[in-house]
């Protein structure tokens, strides 16, 4: 009844039980069960070896002794491992909240602006910034808006009480758009031109749910030989699909701006309802997001470009408006209050 195979079975059973032993107490019980003086499994095996035929006895005895030493060693090893693992190091409640490093956020308008900048940077545009205190020439006159032009009513202006002189110019107004930077850029560079000019702009608009007297814009300008209205449409449609999503439909509608001719507004299909009509798009299925057009020849004449040789397009969009639509913000003032409950909702 005692043979090498039965010894191996004992070993296998022991290893199985050892694997399940999780505490010191378990190990003590295991030791008693296998190595106990009276009824231990190995003790019984030893007795059986003594009763085996004399010819088998030396070999069996050797195997049995080996088994006994092995069990002894493995229990000891296991005891050490358990000690190292558990009993010496206190437990923690892993369900308690962790200690987070301080984390802040960039403003949602910053995030929007940078997304827009990145798209145009990828399309090979230069991002340029200009002064917020502007002179009448760069803000109006060079943009085909001479004094007494009715189009000046489209942008009610905040004027400085006294001119402010800087190295580059004498400012009299808070810029009503970033187009002044486009004039400055063209005065300093020859075509081809491919720029976007983001920044804050100011208008004497009363506060309401969608207007504040300061807001942010991104404007763009492309000038070269043979630039067409098709190029404008292709560029802005690509931008819209990149920014609003690949399934965005776009629509161009004729419009009027003094500095572009022809002029067009870009509508995108409502990203809330997909164009079926909802509260966000006032049931039209479309959202107006961009003003644009082919640069007016009078603007080229003002900066000394030959309008027969060069054509170009310009566009502009309000970042707040896009952010209002995109995030479902119902009061534009929330962007300017610094309310942490609001700011914390945007992704890091």
């Amino acid at each position: 009844m005692t043979d090498p195979a039965s010894l191996e079975r004992v070993r296998a059973e022991f290893l199985d039980e050892l694997a399940r032993a999780a505490s010191d107490a378990d190990l003590r019980a295991l030791r008693d069960r296998y190595l106990g003086r009276k009824s231990g499994v190995v003790t019984s095996v030893m007795k059986a070896v003594a009763a085996a035929p004399a010819g088998d006895r030396p070999a069996l005895g050797r195997l049995a002794n080996e088994l006994k030493r092995d069990i002894d060693a493995r229990i000891a090893e296991r005891r050490e491992a358990l000690a190292a693992l558990g009993s010496a190091i206190p437990r923690v409640d892993v369900t308690l909240p962790g200690r987070q490093p301080l984390t802040g956020r960039c403003h949602p308008l910053t995030q929007m602006r940078e997304r827009i900048e990145e798209i145009f940077l990828r399309m090979g545009y230069e991002v340029v910034e200009g002064p917020e205190l502007e002179d009448d020439y760069h803000n109006f006159e060079a943009l085909n808006m001479p004094a007494d032009h009715p189009a000046r009513d489209m942008q009610d202006t905040l004027y400085l009480a006294a001119p402010v002189v800087s190295e580059s110019h004498t400012a009299t107004v808070l810029r009503t758009h970033t187009s002044g930077m486009q004039i400055r850029y063209m005065q300093a560079h020859q075509p081809p031109v491919r720029i976007v000019s983001p920044g804050r702009v100011y208008r004497r608009d009363n506060f309401d749910l969608t207007h504040t007297p300061m807001f942010s814009q991104v404007e763009g300008l492309v000038v070269g030989e043979g630039v067409t209205l098709g190029d404008l449409k292709g560029t802005l449609a690509s931008f819209a699909r990149d920014f609003f999503g690949p399934d965005t439909a776009v629509r161009f509608r004729p419009s009027f701006f003094p500095y572009t001719e022809p002029s067009a507004e870009l509508d995108v299909s409502c990203f809330q309802c997909g164009g079926r009509g909802c509260g966000v798009c006032k049931r039209t299925g479309w959202l107006e997001v961009l003003g644009s057009g082919m640069v007016h020849p009078a603007v080229f004449e003002a900066v000394g470009y030959d309008p027969e040789r060069y054509t170009g397009f310009a566009f502009g969009m309000g970042i707040e408006r896009v952010a209002l639509l995109k995030y479902g913000v119902d009061d534009i003032r929330q962007f300017y209050e610094g309310d942490l409950r609001f700011l914390e909702q945007f992704p890091a």
């Binding site: 230069e126 991002v127 209205l229 001719e261």
Partner: peptide, 28 residues
Amino acid sequence: IEEVGRHVGYDRVPETFPVLDRVQRGLD
């Protein structure tokens, strides 16, 4: 040109891209 373009319809204007013939300077 605008008068003709408006009434031909801006929906007929193709989507094309201006030729990029030099690398721009990138971010201010």
